[in-house]
Amino acid sequence: MADPNLADLDAFVAVARARSFRGAARLKGVSASALSEALRRLEARLGSRLLNRTTRSVTPTEAGAQLLERLGPAIREIESALDAVNDSSDTPAGTLRLNAPTVVARHILPAIVNRFLLTYPRISLEVENNDSFIDVLAEGFDAGIRYEESLERDMVAVPIGPRLQRYVLAGAPAYLATRGTPRHPRELLAHACIRHRFASRVTAQWDFEKDGEVVRIAAAGPLIATSAELEAQAAIAGLGLICTFEEYLAEGLATGALVPLLEDWLPPFSGPRLYYAQRQHMPPPLRAFIDFIKTDNG
């Protein structure tokens, strides 16, 4: 049996991760038919089916899943080694893949990314939003961005963006005029509340803390959504109270369309961190990004 070449193995990893020939083709900048042919060659050489293909999905077989688990780290090390050979210390080049929570991707990364890409024009950046807790390396990302309580162990973490953030509880003036202003978190049980549901199907609870007292509220109300923007607009319309990242409510708070509530019950928390695995050959784009945010954060 002839040994499979690296290009065919790389094609398999791309398709298996994307769960789609078309999606992988877009990421790789090749045709879907070229990836399909590479998979045909690889399966023929190995004598084993690696992917189950239907008109709606592409999923790894048991053999494919085992191969993907072993190949992922090896492919990344090969890419890192090639990047290191081709790297110029003044002009790093290549692709940097990041995974970030939605709030970070929308409200924190834009200013950082714009300056970074202007500084390093030979680097291409791919950012994917994901609010779930995932193994970013196993999913093919160079690094992830998460908050301190959900960082993976054995990872190096570097602050990115604001050092502190906070949640804000707020309501529209018309709502407060009708329903009253809560003076304690427990009073929220008598209010209409607009809630957020994560992709995991878990609905967020509201946590408050003051002088050592911690109160967790299972709020209820007319709307549960997965879109923070939709939730903010519902609060502005007077449908209920909202508790979320300050960034999502900044415009409404600035114009007076929303009024902050129970501010002394919502202390600030640590901002997001870029996290990555320490390895011998770090991809030049990742090294450049780490150095950039360290300088950017002062």
Rank of each mutant, 00 (worst) to 15 (best):
Y167Q: 08
E247P: 01
A237D: 15
I293W: 01
E69A: 15
L169E: 12
T102I: 10
L137C: 05
A199D: 15
E209M: 06
G171S: 06
V136G: 07
V156G: 02
L164I: 09
S20E: 02
V113D: 07
A81V: 06
H281F: 08
N129F: 07
I224A: 04
L6R: 11
A199W: 05
A32W: 02
H281W: 09
N114K: 04
S150I: 11
D211K: 12
N114L: 05
N5K: 05
D135L: 02
L241N: 03
F245W: 09
L71T: 13
G238Q: 14
A32C: 00
S150T: 13
A254H: 03
L137K: 08
A105D: 11
I134G: 00
I145C: 08
L274S: 04
T181W: 01
L51V: 07
S20R: 04
L39P: 01
N99H: 13
F116I: 01
L82E: 14
D87H: 12
I236F: 15
L50H: 09
A157P: 00
D10F: 08
L46M: 14
M282Q: 08
F12E: 13
L42H: 06
A170V: 06
G238H: 13
P110H: 03
L164K: 15
I108V: 11
N86M: 05
